[in-house]
Nucleic acid binder design. Structure first.
Length: 309
DNA sequence: GACAATGTTACAGT
DNA sequence: CACTGTAACATTGT
């Protein structure tokens, strides 16, 4: 599940791999009746227009906004990609059948190992460069969103204009964080943390891990959280996300970096999917429990994350 | 074969 | 109107 650290890992990889390359073609087999008439390549008519527009342009840079990848092109257009739950971008050689013939494209990584990984085989978008290498989107559940925006004012588009502040920004302070959370005083802390309008980039994994670190129960109501605990959550969010980036993202499920290789954050989970195991906080001795919050799983320690109310 | 997994949004309900 | 909860999206892995 790409959250902020996974998207950042992808963007970092793109800035190393594809800047300066020119696009020669694009192919996709997305086709959904639910996106007819939308500015999403899942509408084949939109894809045809998307393809015509990006052919011939050069990659200037890649950046991240919340969980969105933004690829800036040299003709003042930007490709926006939201990978949703199971999408990830891969860059590499291509040796399969010609795209556009109706057959599924086969992507081959530079290293042979990732090709065996089933999560790298669900390819629904291929962008080809003049060096004949390709950027492809593997997206097992086909939830991803891909669209084209004017670079100037991309942030003001409907895709991005509602998103809250970036938690790793230097300008992001504990005061701003608390004020954002208090915009939903009656909300459960886990759900509010994951609300992209409140703070950008946090999803199920990092909310569980940050709350474990801060010692806060996921069902705690925002209104009841004292200032010092708010600061603790602020610090935990920053530390958890930074650690995720340092470890190259979380590959417990399908996420892979652009070389097709897994990240390492899943080896450091303290709560997420640790149900029934002993809490690893020093001298804690609690047990990790799983509950359902807003139709999503939440994991927490029953000893050092007590509900205070 | 049932069920869990999840980011986001549309929509129904309070 | 504001807010909350749930279904839908599509598919894989267990």
């Amino acid at each position: 599940m790409p959250e902020l650290p996974e998207v950042q890992t992808t963007v970092n990889g793109l800035n190393r791999a594809i800047v300066g390359l020119r696009i020669t073609d694009a192919w996709s087999d997305y086709n959904s009746i639910h996106h007819k008439g939308s500015d999403n390549i899942k509408d084949p008519r939109y894809f045809a227009q998307f393809r015509r527009t990006i052919i011939g342009s050069k990659i200037v840079s890649a950046e991240r906004r919340a969980k969105n990848v933004l690829i800036n092109l040299n003709h003042s257009k930007t490709i926006l990609i939201h990978m949703k739950m199971t999408g990830h971008l891969l860059y590499g050689e291509y040796t399969g059948p010609t795209c556009g013939t109706g057959r599924t494209c086969v992507w081959q990584p530079i290293a042979p190992e990732p090709l065996k990984d089933p999560f790298n085989r669900h390819i629904h978008l291929v962008i080809t460069f003049t060096n004949s290498k390709r950027l492809v989107l593997s997206d097992a559940r086909k939830f991803a969103k891909v669209t084209l925006l004017p670079t100037k004012g991309a942030g003001q588009s409907d895709h991005l204009n509602h998103i809250g502040p970036e938690p790793l920004d230097k300008t992001f302070t504990p005061e701003i964080f608390a004020a954002r959370l208090h915009s939903r005083p009656n909300g459960k802390i886990k759900q509010v943390l994951m609300d992209q309008k409140v703070v950008a980039g946090i999803g199920n994994i990092y909310s569980d891990e940050a709350l474990w670190r801060a010692g806060i129960h996921p069902l705690e109501i925002v209104r009841n959280i004292p200032d010092d605990k708010m600061r603790a959550i602020f610090k935990a969010v920053k530390e958890t996300l930074s650690k995720g980036i340092d470890l190259g993202g979380d590959s417990m499920s399908d996420y892979r970096n652009i070389g097709g290789e897994p990240g390492k954050f899943q080896l450091h989970h303290r709560a997420y999917r640790k149900t029934g195991t002993r809490c690893t906080k020093k001298d804690c001795g609690g047990t990790i429990r799983r509950i359902v919050v807003g139709a999503r799983s939440a994991h927490f320690c029953d000893k050092h994350q007590k509900l205070r109310g």
